[in-house]
Design a protein around this nucleic acid. Structure first.
Length: 593
RNA sequence: GUUCUCAUAGUUAAAUGGAUAUAACAAGCGCCUCCUAAGCGCUAGUUGUGGGUUCGAUUCCCGCUGGGAACACCA
């Protein structure tokens, strides 16, 4: 289905043309003065100079051509040259019926579906997820789901940090603690134990300890580097131990991401591309792109148009070792070879803006990607505490993501119990906990996603879990209300018939219908701009319109069955649209709350 | 030092170059014999500063002030 505004614009363009003006002036937008009109067109003012006429005269000419329109019930020219518009009942009903009958509520399949790889999450193995990982996971998951809904083929890759210095540090520390393990016995030729010699809790403790020691003790550091080298060169015991580290760590990561309703299609990491690095580096040298500067191998990525200094992209350190850049570039090569994507998306902290600009330029210059391959870095802002500074625990440390989720869930549970006590009904403890988890996740995700990704935002537990205002819980409450009515309707023997939509009865119903009609345009904008916040803003408006309608319109007591079925059909559509939206945002609604 | 980025009610956030800048929270007032009051309605309050482009600027351009960040052997 075409977008509502496109249909209106087409109609308006015909009128401009019929009146003898440039059709391009006939752009229709949603009214920003709902008290005056539903839609507006400002083309007459834009065209005033071109035609050397007062805008109001042009507007009058165009309005005259619209008197017979089947689309616009009203087109009034207003000083200085606005065209104020209202649509006809028939047009609106027709559109909403088409939307209800459509599989994706009016979103069409793309003519050329894109193959996209999205790189997000980016946790390190053997380290607990902390709040810094929240945005990459939450925004990335939503960007992925939006693209998928729009009909594109998108693959999400977690891109684990699983191969650098930290691995050597952990292995070295393990050797000091348990020198008797067979992994460190180079003469050992038997089968290594299937069971890992540590738990996830130990692993999470070992890394910070080892990291701290290496900063103070050069010998310790040297030994850890030696272990890193052994691992990377394939020493059997080191590899076996590393396998354990990955297995233990990944199963813990999966558990945590599941709590966040974040799912990756690929669990690749830096280690995945290790073997590709020598070949890639070779090609860069042969191609004449890479040269030695201060001992390091670099590729110049300056461009003619740069006004500022642009540092070259480093490929290998002066000791010949690979670094972050190396694995990222090799990962691009692997993705191009295996997946052949049209577009690569990365989600990291916005502080890496310059870094990704270097990587992208380098990938283009060294022809790792096709000239038409799109490369996009979505840099997101910091999650701050109420003081406006990066979110910290009371003791000043970086809070674990798990603790943050628990904190929200506890607060949600407390509120659910408080609410039920106020209303005087009993809630089952287990049921309440389940509901608290669902609502808590919505609170966290909506709180994050409703902000523009690039901006810093303040993570305020009290505000996000609030029952009131522009929050996740408010959206869920609205959906629960609709579900409740639909359930009662079915209990009364009613059938949910999508086609039963009726001509709108009152203002609040019309407002709700018009809001629903914006769905496909909103989803498309959210996709094109990688902006989940647009969907949040949309469902907040939609929930508002529904609640107003709900408040003013008794539904189940309606005696005219045709009318009632029409209301119900509208509710079904509203519920489906809301649930589709929260699904692409990455959360869901409970049955009751 | 260079470059990037941000600046909107008391607070947190919106606004493809359009009319009277939009919400939420906090404050004040009203609405449950009625489908979940986690709701609805009403009142009061904002574009850092100086220029420019434009019929028209929160939006685009330049300067200033003030926050944040990046600037090759970390990731």
């Amino acid at each position: 289905m075409k977008k509502m505004l496109d249909l209106l614009t087409e109609e308006m363009q015909k009128a401009f043309e019929a009146a003898g003006y440039d059709a391009a002036l006939g752009k229709v937008t949603v009214s920003n003065r709902p008290d005056l009109c539903e839609y507006q067109c400002n083309g007459a003012m834009a065209g005033a100079k071109q035609y050397k006429k007062a805008p109001i005269m042009i507007a009058n000419d165009v309005a005259a051509k619209l008197s017979e329109s089947k689309v616009f019930a009203e087109a009034i020219a207003v000083a200085p040259g606005f065209l104020n518009l209202k649509v006809t009942e028939e047009f609106l009903l027709d559109y909403i019926k088409g939307m209800a009958a459509s599989k994706k509520f009016g979103v069409e399949e793309p003519k050329h579906p894109k193959k996209i790889v999205i790189d997000y999450g980016g946790p390190n193995v053997a380290k607990a997820l902390h709040v810094g990982h929240l945005r990459s996971g939450v925004i990335g998951e939503s960007v992925k789901r939006i693209a998928r809904f729009m009909g594109h083929d998108i693959v999400g890759d977690i891109h684990l940090g699983d191969w650098g210095q930290p691995m050597g540090l952990i292995i070295h520390e393990l050797q000091l603690r348990h020198p008797e393990l067979p992994y460190f016995d180079e003469s050992f030729t038997g089968e290594y134990p299937a069971e890992a010699p540590f738990t996830i809790a130990e692993l999470e403790e070992i890394y910070p300890t080892a990291s701290g020691k290496s900063k103070e003790d050069p010998e310790y550091k040297a030994a850890a580097m030696e272990d890193t080298f052994k691992l990377q060169s394939g020493v059997r015991g080191h590899r076996a131990l590393w396998d354990h580290i990955i297995r233990v760590s990944v199963s813990d990561l999966k558990r945590n991401y599941q709590k966040l309703n974040v799912e990756f299609d690929l669990w690749n990491g830096e280690s995945t591309v290790h073997d590709l690095i020598p070949g890639m580096v070779d090609n860069m040298k042969k191609g004449g792109y890479a040269y030695i500067s201060d001992g390091a191998l670099v590729v110049d990525v300056k461009e003619e148009t740069d006004t500022k200094e642009f540092p070259p992209c480093m490929i290998l350190k002066s000791d010949g070792a690979s670094l972050y850049n190396t694995t990222d570039l090799a990962t691009i090569q692997m993705r191009m070879d295996e997946i052949h994507p049209d577009k690569l998306i990365y989600l990291t902290d916005k502080r890496q803006d310059l870094y990704f600009e270097q990587i992208f330029r380098c990938a283009r210059k060294t022809k790792l990607v096709e000239p038409e391959t799109e490369l996009l870095h979505i840099g997101f802002g910091t999650m701050n505490g109420k003081d406006g500074k990066p979110y910290k625990t009371r003791s000043g440390g970086v809070p674990r993501l798990e603790n943050l989720i628990d904190e929200i869930n506890e607060e949600m549970l407390r509120k659910i119990k408080e609410n039920s006590a106020n209303k005087g009904y009993e809630v089952d403890e287990e049921q309440a906990k389940e509901t608290a988890k669902i609502v808590g996740l919505a609170a966290i995700k909506y709180g994050d996603l409703s902000n523009q990704p690039a901006k810093d935002y303040i993570f305020d537990v009290d505000r996000f879990t609030s029952f009131e205002g522009d929050t996740g819980p408010y959206i869920l409450y609205t959906i629960v209300r609709i579900k409740s009515i639909l359930n009662k309707y079915k209990e009364q023997g009613g059938n949910l018939d999508k086609a039963a939509l009726q001509t709108v009865q009152n203002d609040s119903e019309k407002a709700l219908v018009m809001e629903l009609c914006k769905f496909n345009a909103t989803m498309e904008a959210a996709y094109e701009e990688s902006a989940p916040n647009k969907i949040c803003a949309y469902i907040y408006d939609l929930a508002n319109e529904f609640n107003r309608f709900y408040h003013e319109t008794p539904i189940l007591v309606e005696t005219d069955e045709t009318k009632k079925a029409g209301f119900i059909a509208l509710l079904v559509l509203a519920k489906n649209v809301l649930e589709t939206c929260i699904d692409v945002l990455g959360f869901s609604a409970p049955e009751r709350m």
